[in-house]
Design a protein around this nucleic acid. Structure first.
Lengths: 134, 134
DNA sequence: GCTTGACCTGGAGTGTGCTCCAGGTCGCAC
DNA sequence: GTGCGACCTGGAGCACACTCCAGGTCAAGC
C-alpha cells in the first residue's frame, strides 16, 4: 500500500494542506496515520475517500452532511441503507440544482438575444442599406 | 405604473426586506423612490430588475460582478456590447457548472449502485434461495 | 553540527452574503 | 391621542468554509 506525504496528498486530492488538516480536525478524515516525527501519512484509501469528499463538496453538500456521511461510513454493514438514502437524497438535490440552473440559463440566454437584437438594430440605423440583409 | 411597498416587493421578488436594503446600500439597486415618510417605493421596472438580479445570483454570479453589470446598465446604449459580453461569459460559466455537476453526479450514482449491490448481496446471504432471482 | 524545508499545533483572521438589532418615525384605526 | 404595525437608519453579528499565522519540531543534506 503506497503512502503519501501531506504535500503529495494535497496535490493528488486538490485540497490544500490546510484544508486536509481542517477536515481531520472536524472529523471528516479519521484514522490518518503518523510517522515517527508526527507527520501525517496518507494511504490510497485515504486518497479515495478524499475523492469522494471532493465529489460531495463540489456538488454542494454542506460540511455538516458530509460529516454525517463519514460517521455512517465508520459504522459497519448496518449503515449501508442509511448511506444509500443519504446519497440518493443528495443525487436528487443535484438533479434539482441542474434543472434550476438550466431554467435560469434560459432567462439569461433570452436577455443575451435581446441585447444582440438591440445591437443589430443599432447597426442598421448607422448603415441603413444593411437593414434588408436580415 | 403600479408601485409596491418594501413588504410587497420582498414577497414578489423573493428577496428579504433586509436584502433589498443591502442591495440598495451597495449599489445594486439605484434610484429607488421614497414616499413622504421616507419609505421605499418600488415600481414594476424595479421588480423586473430584481428578477434579473435573482437570476444572476442563483446562477452563481458573485455580487461584485452583478455590481459591474448594474453599472453598465446605468450607462447608455454604448454599454450594450459590454453587457452582452458579460452575460455571454456568465452563460458559458453556467454551462460549465452544469457539465461539472453532471460529471460529479455520475460518480455519486456509481456509488449509489455499489451500495445497492452490497445491500442486495447481503439480502441474498440471509435468504440463499433468493440468490438466483436476479 | 548547522541549515533548510516540510511539516506540526492551537488559534485567530478572512471573504462572502446576508441577517439582526436598537432606537426612532410615520400614518392609520380606534 | 394612543396604540399598532410597517418601515427607517447605521452598524454589529453571523454562518460557512476555509486560510493564515506564530512559534516550534524533525530528518536529511552539506
Amino acid at each position: 500500500m503506497t503512502s503519501y506525504s501531506p504535500g503529495e496528498t494535497a496535490e493528488k486530492s486538490g485540497f490544500s494542506i490546510d484544508t486536509l488538516r481542517y477536515y481531520e480536525k472536524i472529523g471528516l478524515l479519521s484514522g490518518i496515520a503518523r510517522d515517527t516525527a508526527g507527520r501525517r501519512v496518507f494511504t490510497d484509501s485515504d486518497i479515495a475517500w478524499l475523492e469522494m469528499l471532493r465529489c460531495l463538496r463540489e456538488t454542494g453538500m454542506p460540511i455538516a452532511e458530509m460529516l454525517r456521511f463519514s460517521e455512517l461510513t465508520r459504522g459497519g454493514t448496518e449503515t449501508y441503507t442509511a448511506r444509500l438514502e443519504l446519497l440518493r437524497a443528495h443525487d436528487r438535490r443535484v438533479e434539482d440544482e441542474i434543472a434550476r440552473l438550466r431554467e435560469q440559463q434560459r432567462h439569461i440566454q433570452f436577455k443575451i438575444d435581446r441585447y444582440a437584437d438591440l445591437l443589430n438594430t443599432e447597426k442598421s440605423c448607422l448603415s441603413p442599406r444593411a437593414a434588408n440583409t436580415t
